[in-house]
Design a protein around this nucleic acid. Structure first.
Lengths: 193, 193
DNA sequence: TCCAGAATGTGATGTAGGTCACATAACAAT
DNA sequence: ATTGTTATGTGACCTACATCACATTCTGGA
């Protein structure tokens, strides 16, 4: 499917725009291609954009002082990603985003998003709902993290995103679940039988 | 300070409304008073509103199958709270909200919020930013939960909300941090000296 | 002012999951 | 095909925190 169509179908789930409005909306995005392993947002650098994934798979993650990685999100096609904390408050990134596979994205600058939100009420509505859903998902993950053990969270993840199992290295899944790679390895050894 | 002023000051941090617009906005809220211990949202029941806290302190929490409580949020004055997962998707509550102290709130129904967002662009802007901030805070808490041990999270919480220490029972603080009350007790025994 | 129920402290003990070390397997690039 | 690199498996051991049990203190009615 064409780039433009992917985005159109995505936003049409939430709002209705005329063709002219959508063309105008779309004109504020910049297509970009990245290779597997490339970094899109780097901790310590300025962030001025968010990214809509057309294809491929990204990860957004934090590296702590012990160099341990914690994955906030796997970004699959039609997902949005950025370091929103930095983006919204105009600070330097504390989070990284990079490519697990080759990827194509649409880049939208913070300034353009705010301009569009300001000019077209429906678009502000779209972005409000996008964040609403993100907020709810984040709360759910918080509860799951406090409430459930690693095995449960692992199985929950596989049900929700079966594609991930073959797409991303197990250590990244561990970094998402909040367990060590060794523990994850032992978990699915036993849950396979 | 008067009820209306509290809300006005709060939203004025994000948007500017004319006096008429604000009066109209305010007319969609219903003041309610609750006693310590009263439940505002009960798991299993319908949720049709969110609440803006004028004074007092609420907690929103989840109870798991083992009857263990997990606190998602302490809602202090000028904070908003609800079971947003249920509210946004029109399902029954899975989360409870109740009063840690006597409390006064302004109730805003989902229908009224959507009506206001639709009628007044600025108001939709306000709610987008409110959720943006909530989303970012929730991501930060996720990272803290994965990355830091209980003692660190405890000290972090006290720095952020010193009022909580005397206001809410320690077991609720434990339920927020995601540790047992016994562990929390031992933690601050040793960090006091 | 007294009492019942709730909140907190504290010891003993259990356990999920972390860490370290090293072996094996999969992959990518030349 | 070969080789260096990265991912994965697995044993031995460690630690933060949970759980249980019970003592102590606080609190809010009647």
């Amino acid at each position: 499917m064409e780039t433009k169509e992917i985005l159109k179908q995505h936003i049409t789930k939430t709002i209705t725009l005329s063709d002219d409005q959508f063309d105008y909306f779309f004109s504020h995005f910049t297509p970009q291609s990245f290779k597997k392993g490339q970094s899109i947002i780097t901790s310590g650098e300025k962030v001025d954009s968010e990214y809509f994934v057309l294809n491929g798979c990204l990860k957004s993650f934090y590296i702590n002082d012990d160099l341990k990685m914690f994955i906030l999100q796997f970004a699959m096609p039609t997902w949005w990603t950025s370091d929103y904390s930095a983006l919204y408050s105009n600070e330097k990134a504390t989070i990284n985003v990079d490519c697990i596979t080759d990827a194509e994205v649409l880049r939208l600058t913070n300034a353009n998003r705010e301009k569009l939100c300001n000019e077209i009420h429906e678009i502000e509505h779209f972005f409000r709902w996008r964040t609403n859903r993100g907020y709810v998902a984040s709360q759910k993950r918080l509860l799951s993290l406090m409430n459930k053990d690693a095995r449960y969270r692992y199985e929950e993840l596989l049900v929700q995103y079966p594609q991930l199992y073959n797409l991303v290295p197990k250590q990244l899944i561990a970094a998402y679940l909040g367990v060590s790679r060794e523990t994850l390895s032992r978990l699915y050894q036993s849950s396979k039988m």
